[in-house]
Design a protein around this nucleic acid. Structure first.
Length: 348
RNA sequence: GCCGCGGUAGCUCAGUGGUAGAGCAUAUAGCUGAAAACUAUAGGGGCGUGAGUUCGAUUCUCACCCGCGGCA
């Protein structure tokens, strides 16, 4: 858990905020919300899968002169469209979208790359005097941008990882404990993937540095789409059937043909994992449907677990609510009871 | 009707003469360069029914009930 609080951020941010608020007040007074006077700020749309994030983002972008930056760890890949529910040209309604199709599925894309590209995109949008809308369901990616997590400059070493993969979690944990007891204290002792990464860092730079965070220097409004569990489950079902009708299985076949291994498809999870298993005749069509439904519901639950602890998020049910939030946010008086910006960890 | 196999957690099944386990499901949580990935925690069972053997039976014996397969 985040025990290492950076109280320092709070203070400096507050100062920043006050300055901003004043600016906004002036704008509000003059009732001149013209493009050129909009100050830097970021809107984040998040929520569980199938909750309707993309649509909301486009609507808000049209209303408030914004552009969308995707925060989806799978939509960054080219050729993965139907299975990831990537927005279509038509659905974009002329609103530019960034961070879609920026990577080849043959290579592994990571948060660090995402963060760099996303910040670049956001900057580009600011230069056009527009409002960036970060939209997606990958909590880690959103956090990387908004809280500015700084991960150690150690690139993945796949050869080393393959070596370490052979060991058991117990062995890896023991090794880490010896080399970096500090990190060993907080790591999940049975999570091989994390243990391997930690050792990778240790072997390169001695120890895993304490996580650094540098929140964005401008206000952020986080909006979460709230859905009842039952409704979400039926949304997932409908969407799944729609994807199949649109040719999701053919898409996976095509990816396979383009040279992706079954193992790689497995890694993508959900639609790609289960369609791949179906294509390998490891289960029936019906079983695939059932599995996919369940797994997607689980995924949605995991997403909510991730977002739940973040008190900055304003949970909404309708477009109207979102619209009002954004309006007030841009006027500098967003939800008085809730700080629009606060340090993620200190909120815990 | 006869023969065989089976009846254990919501489901699929392990298992033992000293009152039970796994996977999945359900609920909950974590997350330091794979995050749709990866990892963990919890609840839940008169072991088909009745009798017998035994200090003790879910485990052995018998009868019965139910399911599946074969023979008639």
């Amino acid at each position: 858990m985040g025990t290492h609080n950076q109280v320092g951020y709070r203070g400096s941010q507050k100062k920043l905020l006050n300055l901003k608020e004043q600016t906004y007040l002036i704008i509000a007074n003059h009732k001149t919300m013209s493009r050129s006077s909009i100050k830097k700020s970021l809107i984040v749309i998040l929520g569980p899968t199938a909750s309707g994030k993309s649509e909301l983002a486009v609507k808000l972008a049209r209303k408030f002169n914004g552009e969308v930056v995707s925060a989806d760890s799978r939509q960054v890949y080219k050729g993965m469209d139907i299975g990831t529910g990537k927005i279509t040209k038509k659905e974009m309604q002329g609103i530019p979208h960034y961070l879609l199709n920026v990577a080849s599925p043959k290579r592994r894309f990571t948060v660090v790359q995402y963060r760099k590209l996303a910040l670049k995109a956001i900057d580009k949008i600011f230069k056009k005097n527009k409002i960036p809308i970060l939209c997606g369901g990958s909590g880690f990616y959103i956090q990387a941008v908004v809280d500015g997590i700084f991960l150690p400059e150690v690139r993945p070493d796949w050869r080393l990882r393959k070596e370490l993969e052979k060991k058991t979690a117990e062995e890896l944990f023991a090794q880490l404990k010896k080399l970096d007891p500090q990190r060993a204290k907080t790591i999940e002792p049975k999570n091989k993937r994390r243990l391997i990464r930690a050792l990778e860092i240790v072997k390169k730079i001695g120890r895993v540095p304490i996580l650094e965070k540098k929140p964005l220097p401008y206000p952020v409004l986080m909006i979460g789409i709230k859905k009842e569990k039952k409704e979400l489950s039926s949304l997932i079902r409908e969407r799944l059937l729609k994807r199949l009708r649109k040719g999701m299985i053919a898409e996976v076949k095509k990816l396979r043909k383009s040279g992706l291994s079954w193992k790689r498809l497995e890694e993508f999870g959900l639609e790609y994992r289960w369609v791949a298993r179906f294509l390998q005749k490891k289960l029936s069509y019906q079983e695939m449907l059932e599995k996919l439904q369940k797994e997607t519901e689980h995924f949605a639950k995991r997403q909510l677990t991730w977002f739940k602890s973040d008190e900055r998020i304003h949970w909404i049910k309708t477009y109207e609510e979102a619209k009002n939030l954004v309006k007030n946010f841009l006027l500098g008086r967003v939800g008085g009871e809730k700080p629009s910006v606060s340090c993620h960890i200190s909120a815990k």
